[in-house]
Design a protein around this nucleic acid. Sequence first.
DNA 1: CAGGGGGCTAAGG
DNA 2: GCCTTAGCCCCCT
Length: 104
Amino acid sequence: MVSQEFTEKTWAVVASVPSGRVMAYGQVAKMAGFAGYARQVGAVLKAMPEQTTLPWHRIVNASGGLSFPVGSEAYTRQRERLEREGVIFSANKIPKSLFWQPLF
DNA sequence: CAGGGGGCTAAGG
DNA sequence: GCCTTAGCCCCCT
Protein backbone atom coordinates (compact mmCIF):
# COMPACT_ATOMS: atom_id res chain seq x y z
CA MET A 1 0.00 0.00 0.00
CA VAL A 2 1.09 3.56 -0.66
CA SER A 3 0.62 6.59 1.58
CA GLN A 4 -2.67 8.43 1.39
CA GLU A 5 -0.90 11.66 0.54
CA PHE A 6 1.06 10.19 -2.33
CA THR A 7 -2.07 8.59 -3.70
CA GLU A 8 -4.07 11.81 -3.60
CA LYS A 9 -1.33 13.95 -5.11
CA THR A 10 -0.92 11.39 -7.86
CA TRP A 11 -4.63 11.40 -8.65
CA ALA A 12 -4.59 15.20 -8.84
CA VAL A 13 -1.75 15.26 -11.35
CA VAL A 14 -3.23 12.48 -13.47
CA ALA A 15 -6.57 14.27 -13.51
CA SER A 16 -4.85 17.39 -14.82
CA VAL A 17 -3.70 15.73 -18.03
CA PRO A 18 -5.97 16.91 -20.87
CA SER A 19 -7.64 14.59 -23.33
CA GLY A 20 -5.46 13.78 -26.29
CA ARG A 21 -2.26 14.25 -24.28
CA VAL A 22 -0.15 11.88 -22.19
CA MET A 23 2.41 12.09 -19.39
CA ALA A 24 5.14 9.72 -18.23
CA TYR A 25 5.02 7.93 -14.86
CA GLY A 26 8.18 9.65 -13.71
CA GLN A 27 6.84 13.03 -14.73
CA VAL A 28 3.63 12.47 -12.79
CA ALA A 29 5.62 11.56 -9.69
CA LYS A 30 7.76 14.65 -10.06
CA MET A 31 4.76 16.93 -10.55
CA ALA A 32 3.16 15.41 -7.47
CA GLY A 33 6.23 16.35 -5.49
CA PHE A 34 7.65 12.84 -5.31
CA ALA A 35 10.51 12.71 -7.78
CA GLY A 36 11.79 9.16 -8.19
CA TYR A 37 8.49 7.48 -7.39
CA ALA A 38 7.61 6.49 -10.94
CA ARG A 39 7.00 2.88 -10.00
CA GLN A 40 4.70 3.86 -7.19
CA VAL A 41 2.62 5.87 -9.64
CA GLY A 42 2.17 2.65 -11.56
CA ALA A 43 1.11 0.90 -8.38
CA VAL A 44 -1.50 3.58 -7.66
CA LEU A 45 -2.98 3.38 -11.15
CA LYS A 46 -3.06 -0.40 -11.06
CA ALA A 47 -5.21 -0.15 -7.96
CA MET A 48 -7.83 2.01 -9.69
CA PRO A 49 -11.34 0.51 -9.96
CA GLU A 50 -12.78 -0.23 -13.39
CA GLN A 51 -15.43 2.47 -13.19
CA THR A 52 -13.01 5.23 -12.24
CA THR A 53 -13.28 8.53 -14.08
CA LEU A 54 -9.58 9.18 -13.59
CA PRO A 55 -7.78 9.22 -16.98
CA TRP A 56 -5.22 6.57 -15.98
CA HIS A 57 -4.75 5.66 -19.64
CA ARG A 58 -3.02 9.00 -20.29
CA ILE A 59 -0.02 7.83 -18.30
CA VAL A 60 2.61 6.05 -20.38
CA ASN A 61 6.27 5.21 -20.01
CA ALA A 62 9.04 7.68 -20.79
CA SER A 63 9.72 5.97 -24.12
CA GLY A 64 6.25 6.84 -25.36
CA GLY A 65 5.01 3.28 -25.20
CA LEU A 66 2.52 1.46 -23.00
CA SER A 67 3.91 -0.55 -20.09
CA PHE A 68 2.06 -3.73 -21.03
CA PRO A 69 2.90 -6.52 -23.46
CA VAL A 70 1.76 -5.55 -26.95
CA GLY A 71 -1.44 -7.42 -27.73
CA SER A 72 -2.36 -8.07 -24.11
CA GLU A 73 -5.84 -7.18 -22.92
CA ALA A 74 -4.49 -4.35 -20.79
CA TYR A 75 -2.46 -2.99 -23.68
CA THR A 76 -5.42 -3.00 -26.03
CA ARG A 77 -7.69 -1.42 -23.47
CA GLN A 78 -5.35 1.49 -22.84
CA ARG A 79 -4.50 2.00 -26.48
CA GLU A 80 -8.14 2.12 -27.55
CA ARG A 81 -8.94 4.71 -24.93
CA LEU A 82 -6.06 6.86 -26.12
CA GLU A 83 -6.83 6.55 -29.82
CA ARG A 84 -10.44 7.38 -29.03
CA GLU A 85 -9.11 10.73 -27.78
CA GLY A 86 -7.05 11.29 -30.87
CA VAL A 87 -3.68 10.05 -29.62
CA ILE A 88 -1.76 8.57 -32.50
CA PHE A 89 0.70 5.70 -32.40
CA SER A 90 3.68 5.30 -34.68
CA ALA A 91 5.33 1.89 -34.36
CA ASN A 92 3.58 1.42 -31.00
CA LYS A 93 5.02 4.70 -29.78
CA ILE A 94 3.39 8.00 -28.99
CA PRO A 95 5.24 11.02 -30.42
CA LYS A 96 6.94 13.33 -27.92
CA SER A 97 4.79 16.18 -29.19
CA LEU A 98 1.76 14.62 -27.49
CA PHE A 99 3.36 14.62 -24.04
CA TRP A 100 1.68 17.09 -21.75
CA GLN A 101 4.14 19.63 -20.39
CA PRO A 102 2.50 21.41 -17.46
CA LEU A 103 4.12 24.79 -16.91
CA PHE A 104 4.36 24.33 -13.14
C1' DC B 1 19.03 -9.85 6.20
C1' DA B 2 18.69 -11.73 1.15
C1' DG B 3 15.85 -12.11 -3.15
C1' DG B 4 12.57 -11.12 -6.41
C1' DG B 5 9.50 -8.32 -8.77
C1' DG B 6 6.44 -4.33 -10.12
C1' DG B 7 1.94 -0.24 -15.49
C1' DC B 8 9.79 3.14 -14.13
C1' DT B 9 14.22 5.60 -16.08
C1' DA B 10 18.63 6.97 -17.86
C1' DA B 11 22.92 5.59 -19.70
C1' DG B 12 26.02 2.38 -22.34
C1' DG B 13 27.22 -1.42 -25.57
C1' DG C 1 16.43 -0.93 -32.25
C1' DC C 2 17.80 -4.57 -28.70
C1' DC C 3 19.83 -5.97 -23.95
C1' DT C 4 22.27 -5.00 -19.55
C1' DT C 5 23.41 -2.33 -15.54
C1' DA C 6 22.27 0.78 -12.07
C1' DG C 7 19.29 3.57 -9.53
C1' DC C 8 14.97 4.40 -7.78
C1' DC C 9 11.01 3.05 -3.98
C1' DC C 10 7.71 -0.18 -1.99
C1' DC C 11 6.06 -4.77 -0.88
C1' DC C 12 6.11 -9.63 -0.22
C1' DT C 13 8.38 -14.14 0.71
